[in-house]
Nucleic acid binder design. Structure first.
Lengths: 199, 199
DNA sequence: CAAAAAATACCGACCGGTCGGTCTGATATT
DNA sequence: AATATCAGACCGACCGGTCGGTATTTTTTG
């Protein structure tokens, strides 16, 4: 294998290991040594690829947000109407829950770190505002296409984001307390009943 | 001052100092030494009143939840109808935001710790389930009194809790991103439009 | 009531251990 | 040979918690 490919692979292993550790133990409780152990690398290798532990964290955050971005955009692109797109996105939550239920706590780590660390804060806030704008644009499009009532788009977007955040948080705190995919579907339907035009 | 009173006072000072530190720097980043400095106590004094740093944290969590409990109950007791009570509680959020905006990050600390620490998890989950039951009971009472449509009470309660959690989180991450009290009011009104009986 | 004893509140130096990060090289690729 | 990729011993700072001791208040006792 070429040196470049090998380096890339090691880098990826470090990222994966770190993600697992952060999710399982939390950021602070995870030592660089433990990440190295799980990645099959030593400290030297680690610090060859990343300047600091925080840099790994930031990279993880960036990747995660990029993935979410892409999936949201794709979902909208292939949906016929806005309400349908919203329902689809809700189904996405269900996938997220069963696919990465172990990875969810890292979401909390992001927020907690963001509240105290300016670098993480910026990296978190910017995409988050994008989401609000994204949903606001969706609602406006829905109003324009006639599938939604002419409500305050900004407010509706904030409500949607609130519900999403709240659901994810409840889901990670109490994974077996409810079928969160079901709850998400039901919640979104309730919201849509209110947003959709009367038939 | 009696010895007992004095001890109680220092204990309180430690609690206050710890709350400030946890909110400002986060749990892990806060050293016991720093808490002691701000409380005007030394390590010896600290460990005289509390067996560990985590015990302080747990006590803080307990106090916070007890306060929330009391306020919610009181709000319901003095409201005439269920929709009115819900609106009142939304206003409560507004108070929380302006009164303890600096203390909000500690809320995140609670959740983050709860995701990894069984002791904190239990202390968090039990009251949280109570809240869900509380709101479910409220919705059912609303249906019984005829002010709410006969919706799925459990689902509605989960939706309400989701919105509340989401709002608090958004508020603490992006305090100046919106007037969160306003957003809370608007969101609750939107939800209620859907839940209330048609007039 | 006074003296002694016990309990309580607090002090601050100190310890064992951990953790993020560095440094000197060894090994493999180009 | 030059460079990228790693190995792993090592460092210094820091942190939660301990411990022996002091000061103050409360209780017991003569």
């Amino acid at each position: 294998m070429s040196a470049q490919r090998r380096g890339e692979a090691t880098r990826e292993r470090i990222l994966q290991a770190a993600q697992g550790c952060f999710a399982r133990y939390g950021y602070d409780a995870t030592g660089v040594a433990e990440i190295c152990r799980q990645a099959g690398v030593t400290k030297g290798g680690f610090y060859h690829h990343f300047p600091s532990k925080q840099a790994v964290f930031l990279q993880l955050l960036e990747n995660w947000l990029a993935g979410l971005d892409a999936r949201l955009q794709a979902t909208w692109d292939q949906a016929a109407t806005v309400p349908e797109a919203l329902l689809q996105m809700t189904g996405m939550i269900r996938q997220v829950f069963q696919a990465a239920s172990g990875q969810l706590p890292i979401f909390l780590e992001f927020w907690t770190k963001a509240a105290h660390d300016p670098a993480v804060w910026q990296a978190t806030l910017a995409p988050y505002r994008r989401y609000r704008a994204f949903f606001a644009a969706m609602v406006e499009a829905g109003i324009a296409e006639g599938s939604l009532r002419p409500v305050d788009a900004e407010l509706a977007a904030q409500l949607i984001v609130s519900v999403a955040v709240g659901l994810v948080l409840q889901g990670l705190l109490d994974p077996h307390g409810a079928d969160w995919g079901q709850v998400a579907q039901g919640s979104m339907r309730m919201l849509l009943e209110n947003l959709k035009v009367e038939r």
